[in-house]
Amino acid sequence: MTEIQFSGFGGQGIIRLGLISGKALSLYAKKHATMTQSFGPEARGSACSSQVVVSEDRVLYPYVSMPEILVSMSQEAYDKYEPELREDGILIIDKDLVKARPARGKIRTYEIPSTRFAEELGNRITANLVMLGFFTAITQIVSPEAMKKALPGLVPGRFLDLNIKAFDKGYNYGKKTKDEEKKQK
C-alpha cells in the first residue's frame, strides 16, 4: 500500500493531481486507488491537499496517515504537511516556491521549477501537469502512458495538447534527474 499526498495552494490544480493519478492507477494500471480531498475554506487560497491511497487490493481504510510521497507546490503546504511525511519517504517540491529545510531521516528530496517551466510553455496554469510528469518519472508508480490516458475529461479538451506538453516536460526532467541520481551512485 502506498500513501500519496499532493499539496499546494487553492487554484494550482492540486485536486486534479490526485484525480488524474487516481484515475490512471485505477483504470489503466490495475491498481486500487482512492482519492480524497480537503474541502472547505482551506481549499480556497491557503494550503490545500488531495490524497491517494494505492493498493493491490481494495482500499479499506481510505485516508492517508503517514504519506510515503509528498508533493508540495507551496511553502505553506510544505510547512503544514512535511512533518507527516515518513522518514523514508519521497518529497517532491516546486523549487521556486518551496524553500525546504534539510531533509529528515532518509527522506529523498526531488526538486523541479514546475511553475517556471509552465510559464515557459506559455501558461502557468499547467504547472500542475509539469509536476505530474515529474512525479511520474520520479516515483514510477504508474506509467506515463496511463497518466496521459487519464487526462481526457479531467483537463479541458481544448487544452489537452498543452497539458500533455507540460506533462512531458516534467516527465523528461524527472527522467534526467533519475538518470543523474543513478550515475552518482
Partner: peptide, 10 residues
C-alpha cells in the same frame, strides 16, 4: 455522507 460523497474510486 460527505466522505463517501467526495471520495473518488473506480
Amino acid at each position: 455522507d460527505e466522505c463517501v460523497g467526495h471520495m473518488h474510486e473506480k
